[in-house]
Write a protein that binds this DNA or RNA. Structure first.
Lengths: 230, 230
DNA sequence: TGCCTTAGGTAGCCATAGCTACCGATTTTT
DNA sequence: AAAAATCGGTAGCTATGGCTACCTAAGGCA
């Protein structure tokens, strides 16, 4: 196996805490397929049969949802070491729920999911770690989605913003901090329009609750902010 | 171990396809704690340290989110054999993200997550199945959440309804079918008000796209419905 | 049988938030 | 350094959808 590939793999969350030696032995068992895709080609197509847990080895790819009318929405952009198709790997579903599109030349490794919990398990030392990694990966994904659902289910703009800012406030433990998202991205995340988001932020500033400039925010009055979160 | 408890456990998704014999051996390894809770008491409190993967053995409990101001939202109601805290079990987070509240006398079994992937693994035959079950459980959960996010991210009422109905249409493969959710539940799921949902359904009926009575729906014009989904 | 609860449809009012348009500031490209 | 693209704030208009209120149909129960 190519040294460069091994380097990417050990840095990937799915092989976290697995040594290069162990990895080598495991790859012998797992017998993964590696394919390369030219720029602007499909790595996986929504609705078609699932081809296995994907690990992007090189290049950049986009996970996209295409509506019936042909409009495309980019869900995420992934880079070397990132996974895709983790959610389907162990579910009863056997078709891609979204498409994966190569935005540059990509090389991709596919792991057959049944191998991960398969017969080889007793001999390879790293397999237990691999399963643990998968469990951590899926748990984290589910938690992230769960939190997103919570944000999206909130009705008012003021509430969404307040809860989001309180969350960030809690994480940073300071009154002044930098948001991890730009306005556009934040609007997407909360599923509101950027202009309406800006407008409400402006109102909150006028009311003296917060101050901000671009992505940096200062919470002037946490109590008022909590009030705004209902 | 109580026969009744064993009966519940083998019917639980986490012990799916594990024989009562195997289960017995595994429980010896897992050393689960079983607690009982009186009606209207907390099984777990949001923000407090995680106490392990919960399996409800008897009674009925509600997963609730309480806002700072004290208002409570019921997320799910669970019954015997159902799990809670699956998402946190293998994640880095170590606190309950929601509260679990006993709505009747409840008896609950807690499994320490580290045991599931722990040292005992090589001797118990059922452990591999247990892990597989956990992976399936988490994948399915993540997929469900993912789909929910997709619905919630949709802006228009018409679009939400159209896409939801098209999904059901695809599942049922017939023009006439029964929705799995009552109006109220559907409104909650899509995070819209029941009245606005009814209003738009009425409009769609007036336009001849659909017919409905309570939870049964007939798609008159799939093409128009697809148009409505944008 | 009659009462009560739940489910669901309809209507009117109006606040919220989406959209378009525009502009200034900042960053990136050439 | 100029040009182009991105980022973000503001304003006005308007459609959408939330809310209250009310009413009818259907199911549950004594």
């Amino acid at each position: 196996m190519d040294d460069n590939v091994v380097k990417i793999l050990v840095s990937s969350p799915i092989f976290r805490d697995i040594s290069p030696n162990q990895l080598d032995i495991m790859l012998d068992c797992l017998k993964p397929k590696i394919n390369t895709y030219s720029k602007n080609s499909y790595i996986a197509v929504e609705g078609e049969p699932y081809t296995g847990l994907g690990i992007l080895l090189s290049g950049e790819a986009a996970i996209i949802k295409e509506s019936a009318s042909g409009s495309r929405v980019i869900m995420t952009v992934i880079g070397p070491g990132d996974l895709f198709g983790e959610m389907i790997a162990f579910s009863p579903r056997k078709h891609w729920p979204a498409s994966v599109f190569a935005q540059s030349i990509c090389s991709v490794m596919f792991l057959p999911p049944e191998k991960i919990i398969g017969e080889c398990t007793h001999v390879c030392g790293g397999y237990q770690q691999l399963i643990k990694n998968m469990l951590v990966l899926l748990s984290t994904k589910a938690l992230m989605l769960n939190q997103r659902v919570e944000y999206l289910a909130i009705k008012g703009m003021r509430e969404k913003i307040s809860i989001y800012l309180l969350e960030q406030y809690k994480i940073n433990q300071k009154n002044t901090f930098v948001l991890p998202l730009k306005r556009n991205e934040l609007a997407d995340y909360l599923s509101v329009s950027r202009t309406a988001l800006s407008r409400e932020l402006g109102r909150m500033r006028d009311e003296g609750i917060i101050e901000f400039y671009r992505t940096s925010v200062k919470i002037n009055n946490p109590a008022l902010l909590k009030r705004g979160a209902e």
